[in-house]
Design a protein around this nucleic acid. Sequence first.
RNA 1: GCCCAGAUAGCUCAGUCGGCAGAGCAUUUCACUCGUAAUGAAAAGGUCGAGAGUUCGAUUCUCUCUCUGGGCUCCA
Length: 686
Amino acid sequence: MTGSGRRGGRTLAVAMAEINIFLPDGTQRSFAEGSTATDVAASIGRGLAKAAVAAEFDGHEADLTSLLSDGSTVAIITGDSEPGRHILRHSTSHVMAQAVTQLFPGAKFSIGPAIVDGFYYDFELPDGKTFNEDDLRAVEVRMREIIKADQPFVRSEMSIDEALELFHDQPYKQEIIERVRALADAPVVSEDDPAFDDSVADDAAEVEIGGTVSVYRNSAEFVDMCRGPHVPSTARLGHFRLMKVAGAYWRGNEKGPMLQRIYGTAWDSKAALDEHLHRLEEAEKRDHRKLATELDLLSFPLELGGGLAVWHPKGATIRKLMEDYSRDRHDNGGYQFVYTPHLANGKLFETSGHLAWYKDGMYPPMEMDNGTYYMKPMNCPMHCLIFRSRQRSYRELPLRLFELGTVYRYERAGTLHGLMRIRGFTQDDSHIYCTEDQLQDEIASLLDFVLSVLRAFGFTDFTANLSTRDPKKSVGSDEIWDKATEALRVALDRHGLAYKIKHGDAAFYGPKIDIDVRDAIGRSWQLSTIQCDFNLPERFELEYVGNDNARHQPIMLHRALFGSVERFFGVLLEHFAGAFPAWLAPIQVRILPVATAHEEYAHVQAAALRSQGFRVDVVDANDQLGKRIRSAKLEKLPYVLVVGDDDVANNSFGVNPRGGDVQRGVPVDDFATQLAEEVARGSVAV
RNA sequence: GCCCAGAUAGCUCAGUCGGCAGAGCAUUUCACUCGUAAUGAAAAGGUCGAGAGUUCGAUUCUCUCUCUGGGCUCCA
């Protein structure tokens, strides 16, 4: 079966004339043809052999059988498993590099890892040439030829010096090899260690650590440094597509050279590839920018400039409902509402430190007769002024100030993205001032509050990130950092919320929790944040009088649930694919009279429903009923009510719900009662 | 900010090898009055993103800018 290209739950990985066992730690051991499980167990230990994530063998089923019959469980990697997809994607990226070097002589290549759903490879073309769409198609064609040629991937190992010689005309490969040489002598650093360096780990993933470098050759002219593993030969590949070309900095360094990155997707079967492409189409259909236009919710007029939106009536209705709900919850949650202006004298941002650290992210200054003014990039300094406006007692704490505060940030032009990254946006922002003793309880109840509000908007799947101190850049004592970090951790544990610790990822002023939510099609969005701040209370010299009649500095918490109202709106729009639940729908009910004779009844009923607080409109019988229904469906309205002779006679509606079956003759009062229940249920906090 | 690709009617798009700009949907009007996803006819709708250059002539070619999309970087 060698080279037969079996896939789909069957053997994918087969090597030439040897057995390769892939161990869970990412290393690989090779055994000569004919080795048995006894040999394997003797060499690497039975436990490790059992835990192996994959094995390559020579297409001799007898060898495999002997491995298995000996009792060692050696997993054979298949194309429809996660490690299998990883291997075939990485192998496809090698083939792409091979095709590129053939079509573009002199191309330098750097790294080409497997990523979610696919792979990429970064290139530098001679004379600063760049890829275009036609180049991509040409590369695809060449790749298919290589795949058809059924070239075996042959692994070999060499010394670092030999590798440097082999890749003498590949400067990026040489740089990686040099880094690995340095790494071989350096102590092993765990991922949890603050000194852990991602980029070194990436390099280490390319090659073996320990003085040798492994390379894979799959034809006379193409060899690439790689730790492996790979599929045994190129014929095992084939269900791929090159998706796009993009610029990418070498090692992600903005000051470094810009390479050409080609992204591709690769799967073990045509069905899996088609399914993936279909998923992309579905995600595209839910794109909030597309839906915002189709549903007439908002727009980004050219005349306004980049990253600035205007809200049309329907979008504004949804936004108002979101904001009303938020205000209501905060009102009941012990928050006090404040308002602050959109711009301020630069002295304020000098005091807060924003000008010193964040000036590039702020709109440029406005010179005025009595000073220099800036649009506010944050609400916190202003809330601190409110705290400081008079002497505070411990009896007032925790003091929770809340504002739907609109801020302006000069996001770099290339980073703008619809509502998700925008230059003027509104935070559901609160700053909580509390004592050290109150910190634990405050954070715990805050986490309750955050999750409850998110659930009310239809999200159920959450994960959290806990970002801890970066000792190289932080203010505040060890003691207070430990205490705050512990408070955040305890709150997460108490909730049983899954969380990852991001070491050293905290802002300089304090640790934080970020909440990610999964939407209806499984994408993850970072929304809420809870941040401790030991910096601003110091800078603004905030204090309260304690029960010991002495002055103390409060701890400050920043927190936002939506994060930004605009971004949250965008996420909701994609989550619901524009079909907002009844409590948020800008138009909940549309009444369609069958003919002109029923228009009066339709308008009377619409007025009656409006008086009960529902959002209702009527479309008169100028068009055919079918057309008006179609139009209402495209607008994704929760309820279409058709009224004709029967309904006028019986005081009823023909109810056509979104995603449900038509029901004729529903009594008017029954419909109103049921809709009221649905609306009330929709926004209930869980 | 950097790399690539774009910008034509409200929307989705076609087109002009440089010579008065096109469709469907939406809009308006007229006819039709219809029971659950597209009735028919007509009208109106455009400085072809902005500016400069080349040209007898530019929406089309060149350059700059603006904005958008995909990435990279960034998001204190």
